[in-house]
Amino acid sequence: MDNNNPLPSTTRRLFLQRSLIAMAAVAATPVLGSQALTSTAVTSGQTPTLKILSSEEYRTLAAVTDAIIPQSGAFPIGALDIDLAARIDHHLKAELTDVVAGVSGALMFIENKAPEAFAGKTARFSDLETSERESILLAMRDAGGVPTIIFSAMRGLSIFYFYTHEDAWPHIGYDGPLVKRPNPVQQMGV
């Protein structure tokens, strides 16, 4: 599995079949509930103050963002250097209940279901090696159906909030805004 695998859906029947299997996996996820998530071992570092996500969700999201934008390679910094998971949490809006519920559901699926469904592993996603996590995300991308939807959503969130961060800009040759101002809603003191 790599970034340039050809279209899985050229074999359309297989694609649909996989989608159905994936759908069932996602449907089963909520029964795990928050109990299962709270029993997840938190490994490294301190959890920052979070606005929306639970510390378990933060931990999974940190692992996901690290796989999507790892450190080193073309340029040194990656998601962990800017605490991308905390940045995403900061920008999530509680009033957008559908978005918040979607992120929670997606993280629950990735943490608890994806390792077994896509790599035959019983461990939780955030306990896996970086390379294993990347393989699982790529397998989700190529599976079609709900896993691909979850992959796209996580990829979109991670990339959007990483490349809108000023620390990323020197590495991609973007010289950033011409004005240096805070968010106007913060200016209003809220």
Partner: peptide, 24 residues
């Protein structure tokens, strides 16, 4: 729109970082 346009391609990981180096 750096954040939205960075979504182009299906790559993640080191491959996507290489692509983003070509932003200019």
């Amino acid at each position: 729109l750096v954040g939205l346009l960075a979504q182009s391609s299906k790559a993640i990981g080191h491959e996507h970082k290489r692509i983003m180096q070509e932003y200019p």
